[in-house]
């Protein structure tokens, strides 16, 4: 399989604090990758560097053989990287359909002279995500799990090649975790590469083909899920021995 995303020697400092140091990671086309690590280990910093919200101090990030350094987040989204936020950030003055219309207008159908049926397409994606009955509701009335689904739906409306799901399941019940997992599996089935950041280990174990673990800004382990949980470095990082 070919490499979709390549992170090479990426470092990031905040003042004197090293958030990421020399991280190397390749993600293959169509892969389901789990990214774990204790709080403050640099997971979110890493995906912020990939999505462009932060600039990496050193190293390079290559996506579809193009160096992303210097590109703004919206330019990266147009090239096929989408993300969801850990704490949902819906456009709260809009309905879910209107939320999805933004990426549809700005990415998927950008510059298309004859506008497609954006509303219809937004509705189709929302129905797919199980939000069919809330398509025209106010965002304020959505439950936590519905907001998470909206985050994913909005990311998907940009038709990404890579989806980064940042703790989309934190705080959800067992049944709800299964629901979101099912959605992610379905997306993966359509050929989308997915990086899943999660603390819920059983979700990571079920979903990932490969798991990498960050600790204090460094990649300390990499392997299939069953090996990772047995890895002594990972156990030390989590249990703080």
């Amino acid at each position: 399989m070919s490499t979709l995303l390549s992170i090479a020697g990426v470092s990031k400092h905040f003042g004197g604090f090293t958030a990421l140091s020399n991280v190397n990671l390749d993600v293959a086309q169509g892969e389901r990758l789990g990214l774990i690590g204790p709080n403050g280990s640099g997971k979110t910093t890493l995906i912020n560097c990939v999505s462009g919200a932060l600039k990496n101090d050193a190293g390079s990030i290559t996506f579809k053989n193009e160096n992303l350094n210097g590109l703004a987040p919206h330019q990266r989204t147009r090239r096929g990287i989408a993300r969801s936020f850990q704490i949902p950030r819906p456009f709260h003055s809009m309905t879910p359909v209107e939320n999805l219309a933004v990426p549809l207008e700005y990415v998927t159908y950008r510059g298309v002279a004859h506008k497609h049926d954006i509303k219809g397409e937004a509705e189709a994606i929302l129905r797919d995500m199980g939000l069919g009955d809330k398509m025209h509701a106010a965002c304020a009335g959505l439950s936590q799990v519905e907001l998470r689904k909206l985050e994913l739906a909005r990311a998907m409306a940009a038709r990404p090649a890579l989806l980064i799901s940042d703790e989309a399941m934190a705080g959800l019940s067992h049944a709800e975790v299964d629901e979101v997992l099912a959605i992610l599996f379905k997306l993966s089935g359509t050929g989308i590469t997915i990086i899943m950041i999660e603390h819920i280990m059983h979700a990571i174990m079920r979903f990932s083909e490969r798991v990498v673990c960050l600790d204090a800004g460094e990649l300390i382990a990499e392997g299939v899920p069953t090996d990772i949980v047995k890895n002594p470095d990972v156990q030390r990082a989590y249990l703080g021995a």
Binding site: A53, H74, T77, A82, P90, M94, V102, Y106, R110
Partner: peptide, 25 residues
């Protein structure tokens, strides 16, 4: 127009707007 929808997204949440492809600046 499309500009208005983008501006509204910026008002609601600028970071999210940028991440769904809105050239906010």
């Amino acid at each position: 127009s499309w500009i208005g929808r983008g501006l509204r997204a910026i008002k609601d949440n600028e970071e999210a707007a940028e991440c769904v492809g809105v050239p906010t600046l």
